[in-house]
Design a protein around this nucleic acid. Structure first.
Length: 869
RNA sequence: GCGGUCGUGGCGGAACUGGCAGACGCGGCGGACUUAGGAUCCGUUGGGGCGACCCUUGGGGGUUCAAAUCCCCCCGACCGCACCA
């Protein structure tokens, strides 16, 4: 019994001492260490992984949701008898460390290591069941040594290569960015408008696996559809034709274009080239107006504003191209700003009637608009194009040999004709490009290459790895400190011995995170990135947890790496898929405020006065902003350490999983946090109030436990066990939380001191503590001990629900008359239809009000509906 | 423009495969204990009506004995991609 009713005084649950006590005890017992099969491990494996953090400073409660979800799964699977691998590490290379060095003068490594120390302590406070023996940091030479070896293996295999390429150049961060790191034409970190530059770069041949990366998405049944859809769009496969237009009066000269609509070829009215197409450039050499146009397009860039204005512009290059199907017809050749040099062939044929961009361009420059696809039901004599191009399917007309063919057939016929003429062929085009991995930055993994004037780029011999980053670098000038270092890059060529220079670029940090999940399977291995047998045992990751923002970055690169490593003989992963299950969790949001001058205000700087927010310091009104992801810049973070000190780790864990479904955002509120704290206290009060040991899993219930209140409580407890089990498996943590509340409420209501109810209460408390263990591990462990069980609950098996108690013997079925609930009946579970029908009719009789029963629908164990009229 | 997700009380959200809408929490209201309560506990809480009852899942149609759930048409919000030929 609780509180005053029983006369037992209950002490408040002291989270400070208890959480520390169990964290220490778990640690000393080595409960969370994953075991290799070589150690005689016989249990089935389960690999749970949260996307490892960048050590940026401190953890706030927003970050903790991600780790808590993974930890719930890890603790649950461990209890279910799996050999669980649940490791943690640090994505430790990256720009912020270098920026901190520039701003504060601290060495990137010093800054990073200090952050790791802080954040590791914070993660430990959260009570995460991590195997810290496997901790890795990507900035550790013991890690990047293997990455350098992997790079060389890729190079040998042709999966890494070097070429001059136009790159996205961030003028603020002074570095090259991957396409994925350019958002709306701006650098993802600096926000600066990105320029283009031509540089010698290293690339990973992601496109070697394009089809497999696309097709294998269908095998990832435990991935969110959304992520698979995003990758599909990113790879953007499109089938069509590549064809050549001969240049009139220039024997052998031709322009190659790509199209997805070869069926519209008879509607072609011009050819358009990208402003930086080789032919455009050639003509620009002799035509100043073309050169000026190209320069204008280059300066406009790909910024958001530029795209939004999106005025179609071009310049006539004065050439004529010969239509492959109509040798007597020639088309004008233009350079146009809407043609992308990086897609297809950087050239297209314009069919204004059936492409909106082409139409806008044609209207502006007075080019012909000839419809050649008749929409279903349209009249060939009157159909005309106005402001909207017709892009749908229909029937070809005014198209020579294609006439009367439906669009799909016309497509095939056109391709066949092109192939017969030798003028083109059917091809599949992708948007996915190879991955440029060179970065002109210090704080990254050095690329193990030496450039020799005689031998060219030469690999650093493997026995000389790792190529270490020099410690003595300066950040007082822009650009790459490695390139400026007085001695580091000067080395003899490993092949000929002549003076040569090291590659001073480092690898994109996304390389570091593309294989770390495999390193965790064998993190101490000094000889190899990982032991293939260990990787075969642990991989794929069974449950990966992280943010959806990585849908096309990290998650695509990691899939590429798994395939590339396999083909280099380093990894034995049959499906090539690193992550079997993926869960993308929502963020923790918090209210935001801004002062009149637009500055962000912390919630504690704001007070409510007559329902309106004001800034306390000035008394001026404050605008309450939208709910935002917690971030320092918006001043809406709740610091984890401070919260844990005040309420405890269990409360933080409980709160971030309550209320909202895990895939959706959850709003952090003080009231909600207090509610979570109240729950912890209530659970503890219930345990203390019980004040005696609880019956163990095998204990036989006393007489009387099969009826009345005792039975009801036992049923509630066993149903909670069954429900929470399903909820954890289905990632419905908010539902599991609700079930725990229900059980606690049932427990609190069940008063009385007779043997049966005491038994039921003890059993319910034991089961409650067991199902709470993944969520509130410290409280549960303390409760387990208080109920008379030996440590550790964290190592105890998951409770089994008794099916006889989950399923009731008798059910209350609602009885509807014409779809409206009018009565209810008691019926045995699984009662046959005739019985239920009779019971329902008897009950409903007086309620029918003279209506005639026309039909009775009985859904076993669910509902009865009487149709009357 | 393309792709996706989603609209349920004052709020966050439950509701299996179509079967009692509103679990659970927050907030509110009433009470108990208190010098006090922003602690704790008990009760209550979708809306309307004194009432047997009626209404209610963004709006409108439809299918069905039965629709938050399935179909069609609107309206709205959010996320991703975006001159991709």
């Amino acid at each position: 019994m609780i509180g005053k009713n029983s006369g037992i005084m209950t002490a408040r649950y002291n989270h400070r001492d208890i959480e520390l006590k169990w964290a220490k005890a778990w640690d000393e017992a080595g409960l969370f260490r994953a075991h290799a099969p070589a150690e005689g491990e016989a249990r089935a494996k389960y690999y749970v992984l949260e996307m490892f953090p960048y050590p940026s400073g401190r953890i706030h409660v927003g970050h903790s949701r991600n780790y808590t979800m993974g930890d719930v799964v890890a603790r649950f699977k461990r209890a279910q008898g799996y050999n669980v691998l649940h490791p943690m590490g640090w994505d430790a290379f990256g720009l912020p460390a270098e920026n901190a060095a520039i701003e504060r003068g601290a060495h990137p490594e010093t800054w990073t290591r200090a952050n790791i120390t802080t954040m590791k302590a914070q993660l430990r406070l959260l009570g995460l069941s991590l195997d810290w023996d496997r901790e890795i940091a990507t900035c550790d030479p013991a890690y990047y040594k293997h990455q350098q070896a992997i790079f060389l293996a890729f190079w040998r295999k042709g999966l890494a290569y070097r070429r001059s390429a136009k790159v996205n150049w961030d003028p603020v961060d002074n570095t090259v960015l991957a396409n994925e790191q350019v958002v709306d034409g701006r650098g993802w970190r600096s926000g600066a408008v990105v320029e283009t530059r031509e540089l010698e770069q290293w690339f990973f041949r992601v496109t070697a696996y394009t089809d497999d990366l696309l097709d294998a998405l269908a095998t990832l049944s435990r991935w969110p559809d959304k992520v698979a859809a995003m990758q599909t769009n990113w790879i953007a496969r499109s089938a069509g034709a590549r064809l050549r237009f001969a240049l009139a009066g220039a024997p052998g000269g031709a322009i190659e274009v790509f199209t997805t609509r070869p069926d519209t070829l008879f509607g072609a009215s011009f050819i358009a080239l990208a402003p930086d197409h080789p032919l455009t450039k050639q003509i620009a050499g002799v035509r100043p107006d073309v050169a000026a146009f190209a320069a204008e397009c280059a300066s406009l860039g790909t910024s958001e504003e530029a795209i939004e204005k999106a005025e179609k512009k071009g310049v006539d290059l004065g050439l004529r191209a010969v239509h492959p199907f109509e040798p007597h017809a020639t088309l004008p050749v233009w350079a146009a700003n809407f043609v992308l040099s990086g897609y297809g062939t950087g050239a297209l044929f314009g069919c204004p009637a059936h492409d909106q961009r082409d139409l806008e361009f044609a209207r502006r420059y007075g080019l012909p608009v000839k419809p050649v696809v008749l929409p279903p039901g349209a009249d060939a004599a009157t159909f005309a194009i106005g402001k909207e191009a017709y892009t749908g399917a229909g029937t070809a007309y005014r198209s020579g040999f294609l006439d009367a063919l439906p669009t799909e057939e016309a497509r095939g016929a056109a391709i066949a004709a092109l192939e017969r003429l030798g003028a083109g062929e059917g091809v599949v085009q992708y948007r996915l490009r190879d991955w440029g991995v060179s970065r002109q930055r210090y704080w990254g993994c050095p690329i193990p290459v030496i450039h020799c004037t005689a031998c060219g780029p030469t690999p650093v011999p493997e026995d000389q790895l790792p190529v270490l980053l020099p410690q003595d670098v300066r950040f007082d000038a822009p650009g790459n400190p490695l390139a400026r270092h007085p001695t580091w890059k000067h080395v003899p060529c490993p092949r000929c011995g002549a003076p040569a220079e090291r590659e001073t670029d480092t690898l994109d940090t996304f390389v570091d995170s593309s294989w770390y999940f495999a390193r965790f399977t064998d993190p101490q291995n000094t000889e190899r990135p990982f032991d293939p047998a260990a990787a075969r045992y642990w991989l794929p990751v069974d449950q990966y947890v992280g943010g959806v923002e990585h849908a096309v970055l990290h998650l695509l690169y990691a899939r590429f790496f798994a395939r590339a490593l396999r083909d280099c003989g380093l990894l034995d992963l049959p499906g090539g898929e690193p992550f079997g299950g993926l869960f993308t969790q929502g963020m923790v949001t918090h209210e935001t405020y801004r002062s009149v001058d637009g500055q962000w205000l912390a919630p504690e700087e704001v007070a409510l006065q007559d329902g309106a927010a004001i800034e306390i310091k000035t008394g001026a009104p404050a605008a309450s902003g939208p709910l935002e992801k917690m971030s320092k810049s918006k001043k809406n973070v709740i610091d984890l350490d401070a919260f844990i000190a005040a309420f405890g780790a269990d409360v933080a864990r409980w709160f971030v999983l309550s209320d909202s479904p895990p895939e959706r955002d959850v709003e952090w509120t003080a009231a909600g946090a207090e509610g979570a704290a109240r729950f912890v206290q209530r659970v503890w009060a219930a345990i203390e109030g019980h004040g005696r040991p609880a019956p163990g899993p095998g204990a036989a219930p006393p007489p009387g436990a099969d009826q009345g209140e005792a039975l009801a409580l036992r049923q509630a407890a066993h149903r909670a066990v069954a429900g929470v089990t399903e909820d954890i498996e289905g990632f419905r943590f908010n539902r599991a939380v609700a079930r725990c509340y229900e059980l606690l409420n049932a427990l609190t209501r069940a008063k009385g001191e007779d043997e049966a109810i005491v038994f039921a209460r003890g059993e319910a408390l034991r089961l409650l503590v067991q199902i709470l263990a993944p969520f509130l591990p410290h409280l549960a462990e303390e409760g387990w001990e208080a109920l008379g069980f030996a440590p550790f609950l964290a190592a105890a098996p998951w409770p089994q629900a008794d099916p006889a108690l989950v399923e009731a013997a008798a059910l209350t079925l609602p009885v509807q008359i014409n779809g409206k609930r009018r009565a209810e009946i008691e019926a045995p579970k699984g009662a046959d239809e005739a019985l239920v029908r009779a019971l329902a009719l008897a009950k409903a009789e007086p309620l029918l009000g003279g209506l005639t029963v026309r039909k009775v629908v009985v859904v076993t164990d669910r509902i009865v509906n009487i149709v009357a009229g």
